[in-house]
């Protein structure tokens, strides 16, 4: 996807240098592009790809536990305490937020679909497609969050003594 982004942006640079406007035109409209490809489409395509990249990378970074943690103090916590922190955080912070975001961004996307939102400068059509990345990303986060809650619960329940070595939050 980064390749595509690099490629699209480079096309924009070259196109702008040569002062191109309409790059291609065809009869039957296709999703996202409508029936033409202009420099404006290329410009808008940049942030379309970026939006998708952000939401997918966000979920990927969660899976790899790469989101910034400040472990000044928590470095001294036991594994079990850290696991409980994650469990509570996921339950009361992450899940409510992404559940609401999934719900409201779905409505947000539907509105774009219903009203045929599109570029007002002769660029891309079908804004609802790029707006779909929000509910998509939220559902991925939600799924990953619920997964971690279940895993952490499993670890906590199967090691009631407090000796936990697996699962939880790797540093």
């Amino acid at each position: 996807m980064i390749f595509i982004l690099v490629f699209v942006v480079l096309t924009a640079v070259i196109g702008a240098q040569f002062g191109l406007s309409e790059l291609a035109h065809w009869e039957n409209p296709i999703p996202l592009f409508g029936n033409h490809l202009s420099m404006t489409s290329i410009g808008e395509l940049q942030w379309h790809i970026f939006a998708l990249l952000v939401m997918l990378s966000g979920a990927y970074a969660f899976k790899e536990d790469r989101h910034v943690r400040v472990d000044v103090w928590s470095a001294r916590f036991s594994d079990r305490t850290r696991l409980i922190v994650d469990l509570l955080g996921d339950l009361f912070l992450l899940i409510p937020f992404f559940a609401l975001l999934a719900w409201y961004s779905w409505a947000f996307m539907l509105m774009a679909y219903e009203f045929g939102e599109q570029s007002n400068a002769g660029g891309l059509v079908d804004r609802y497609l790029v707006k779909t990345v929000l509910p998509l990303g939220s559902v991925l986060m939600l799924g990953a969050g619920v997964g971690r809650v279940l895993r952490n619960l499993g670890v906590l329940l199967s090691h009631p003594s407090g000796k936990t070595t697996t699962g939880g939050s790797p540093q």
Binding site: A16, S21, S38, T40, E44, N120, A121, G122, G123
Partner: peptide
């Protein structure tokens, strides 16, 4: 330039920029 004017200008060879 944007809007309808952007589309008009495209027809006379201008490259509208966002």
């Amino acid at each position: 330039i944007g809007g309808l004017a952007g589309r008009v200008l495209t027809k006379v060879g201008v490259s509208p920029q966002m």
